[in-house]
Amino acid sequence: MIFSMTGFAAVQRELAEGTLSLELRAVNHRYLDLTVRAPEELRSFEGVVRERIAAKMARGKIECRIGFNAQAAGAAALVLNRALLQQLVEVSREASALVPAGGELRLGELLRWPGVLTQATASSEALGEALQALLDEALAELAASRNREGEKLKAHLLERIAGMEAIVADVKPRVPQLVIEYEAKLKARFLEALGSGDDDRVRQEIVVFAQKIDVDEELSRLGAHFSEIRRILEKGGNVGKKLDFLMQELNREANTLGSKSVSVETSRASIELKVLIEQMREQIQNIE
């Protein structure tokens, strides 16, 4: 599969103690650039989050936002501090024995005592387990998003390759005749200038120049690059850097084709190829 470096995922999970949420945003970048933003109670898990994301992403600028909204006061389960309550009861009885007129503490007074009733809070371990499960879910959603975008990029690149193959297929059969026609024009100019058709030096110069303007080798290399790009796209994986290198090679051959051009046809072919190559290069910057 081909993965784009652009994607988004947002997931959340309702816990007994509150709502845990996680967002992943990814855009293209030359290397892996990861930012994690987490609340204080989850800051200790930042290292684990980074490791899990890095195991799934090779390149891209990725922002991970983690949120935790605890339940509102009164909504969370109450926890009775039995040890403190027992201690208060015993102290109340001792005090009542010393001052009988005062009476013992009533149940309502005991329950209102600071620390006797507390709201349940998520343990660090429970939050960590929930966070890792939520992160795995977000990474799967992000991968699906990046794959959908990657398949679109793949289709775009294959379309441009087909366009370039058509250009090469159109101009390649005509190259030998174009070279012959240009040789004839060149010979005619030499004859006009020198007044002799038997000069060995003239014939040698024409042969040498004809070799210099022959673009058959460049067209063959372009075809080989097209095949390699198709192979890479079908194989999939982390192919962005390989494709970027091949764009440089394609551009080099297209430039050489233009510099050797002796006809309108080859000059036009060179320009059209470079336009398509540039379109591909822009899209490849988004591929992992």
Results as ranks from 00 to 15, higher is better:
108 G>V: 11
89 V>H: 11
131 L>H: 06
268 R>D: 14
92 S>I: 08
18 G>N: 02
106 R>P: 10
9 A>L: 08
23 E>S: 04
117 L>G: 06
101 A>K: 14
60 G>L: 02
39 P>Q: 05
192 E>T: 10
171 V>S: 08
155 A>W: 04
245 F>T: 02
106 R>E: 14
90 E>A: 15
286 N>E: 04
86 Q>E: 15
267 S>Q: 07
113 W>T: 09
230 R>W: 02
39 P>H: 06
22 L>D: 02
27 V>F: 04
170 D>N: 13
197 G>E: 15
183 E>C: 10
10 A>E: 14
206 I>F: 06
65 R>H: 11
61 K>I: 11
150 G>R: 00
202 V>K: 06
145 S>Q: 10
153 L>R: 00
194 L>C: 06
85 L>S: 01
207 V>P: 01
150 G>Y: 00
185 K>D: 10
83 A>D: 15
221 R>D: 00
240 G>L: 02
207 V>W: 07
22 L>Q: 03
213 I>V: 10
265 E>M: 08
110 L>V: 05
233 L>V: 01
198 D>T: 09
245 F>V: 07
223 G>A: 07
281 R>P: 01
231 R>M: 02
158 L>K: 09
48 V>M: 13
151 E>F: 00
133 A>S: 13
192 E>V: 07
162 A>E: 10
227 S>I: 10
153 L>M: 08
120 A>P: 08
33 D>F: 09
85 L>P: 00
264 V>T: 13
132 Q>T: 13
52 R>A: 07
254 A>N: 03
196 S>I: 12
208 V>M: 15
82 R>H: 12
204 Q>T: 11
269 A>C: 05
137 E>K: 02
108 G>F: 10
106 R>D: 15
135 L>R: 01
11 V>M: 11
144 A>H: 09
92 S>M: 05
135 L>P: 02
161 I>K: 06
123 S>H: 07
149 E>S: 07
239 V>P: 00
282 E>D: 03
144 A>I: 06
228 E>V: 06
214 D>I: 01
272 E>C: 08
280 M>I: 04
163 G>W: 03
99 V>S: 14
